[in-house]
Design a protein around this nucleic acid. Structure first.
Lengths: 218, 218
DNA sequence: TAGTGTCACCACAAATTTGGAGTGACACCA
DNA sequence: TGGTGTCACTCCAAATTTGTGGTGACACTA
């Protein structure tokens, strides 16, 4: 129960062993051409054990999907007190882009990763599902930590959390998709990144200005 | 049941992981100052699992004890048809010495290994037990594959297997003990080895000449 | 001499992993 | 249209490993 027992450690080791065995196989052969049994064999584990840890095959690929689902919500919940949630998401995305965060796929090899997704309908569907859940989590986070809208001139009522979340998450997804498309089209990563950065600044600024009419455009 | 299943592989891995973790600890701290729990911790395994594989603590040190117990018997059983069993044992020992076989302790670091044994009454007792069982196995092997004693002039009836085994195994043990003592006394390994080699040649020749009066002394 | 601590080792329940025998969906093929 | 095969996934029994609480031997100490 304390999470530090030998049993917990072994479970974590088994899980990462499976995930670490799975990714190279997917990258090399494609998601649909790799069977769960092969993953199990490479991980030195039985097929049943794979299913113990990853209820569906897609989870083997989106191992950190659960984290991604919670990421936006966490950013909003953990933002500085009084800060605008939209700006928090924006800043998080920008810093991720500037620091070449692995999750965003600016590392070499990300292209292969993306190609696996594009080649597999199952993974594409799963990705959408993850995005949807991330949005739902963001909605919940916004409900609990709504934006602070000062009573300033030009102020209008903020949208309900679900809509705001829809806009924010939608813009977030679009930014990452744009980045992906540019890089896979052969554009230089830095160039693509900079283009997306300015696009993100502009896009989120749009929402922010609607929320805080007095804020200066950046 | 076939011994190639995943389960068997894992068991073997666990066993060697434990043994491999145990030896360095014993070499560094001495047998009696290392607890089974510490071995388990270094092997990343629970204490109970250690006892699953090594019924008594001494087995952790003499991991290959079972092999050693069978070695002499195997040499006798597998000798060339018609060959003298004593000579087979002698040749095996000599070739082991000449090739610096690890079991004989001619490798650097063997001194530390021996010192651990000498420092631990439990290990000394265990070593004797192993020697005794090896002798019993040799007796059995000799019973099934007795020496071929030609009806030559000067021929006398061969001793019962148990006695022959006692002599052979006893000489074998003495040779290794001699080697050990010389090296631990600081003698150069090559020097000690050569001395023991000639001693072995002489010693086994003695028995062989009793068995085969017509054989030429070497 | 009784108390205390350490350690080898045991016993048993709970958790994890494996093996094996399925089922259902789907593709391929005659 | 009806096999046939593959593969994701399920269910269950058995094997393995771990957690926990012992016991008894032995050394040390007050």
């Amino acid at each position: 129960m304390c999470g530090v027992g030998l049993r917990e450690i072994k479970k974590q080791q088994t899980r990462t062993a499976i995930a670490d065995a799975a990714l190279p196989l997917f990258l090399e052969y494609g998601f649909d051409r790799v069977t769960v049994a092969e993953v199990a064999r490479h991980a030195g584990v039985s097929t049943n054990t794979v299913f113990n840890y990853f209820p569906v095959k897609e989870d083997l690929f989106f191992d950190r999907g659960a984290d991604a689902e919670e990421h936006l919500a966490a950013v909003v919940r953990d933002r500085a007190p009084g800060a605008c949630p939209v700006e928090a998401v924006c800043e998080d995305l920008l810093s991720g882009l500037r620091e070449n965060h692995p999750m965003l796929g600016l590392q070499p090899g990300a292209t292969a990763f993306w190609q696996v997704i594009l080649d597999s309908p199952a993974l594409l569907a799963r990705e959408r599902e993850i995005g949807e859940r991330a949005e739902a989590a963001l909605t919940a986070a916004l409900t609990g930590h709504p934006p602070h809208t000062a009573d300033a001139p030009g102020h209008c009522a903020p949208p309900p959390p679900a809509l705001l979340a829809g806009a924010v998450a939608g813009m977030h997804r679009a930014a990452l998709r744009e980045l992906r498309q540019r890089i896979m089209a052969g554009e230089a990563p830095e160039e693509a990144r900079d283009a997306v950065i300015s696009a993100v600044v502009q896009g989120f600024d749009l929402i922010c200005r609607g929320l805080h009419p007095t804020a200066e455009p950046r």
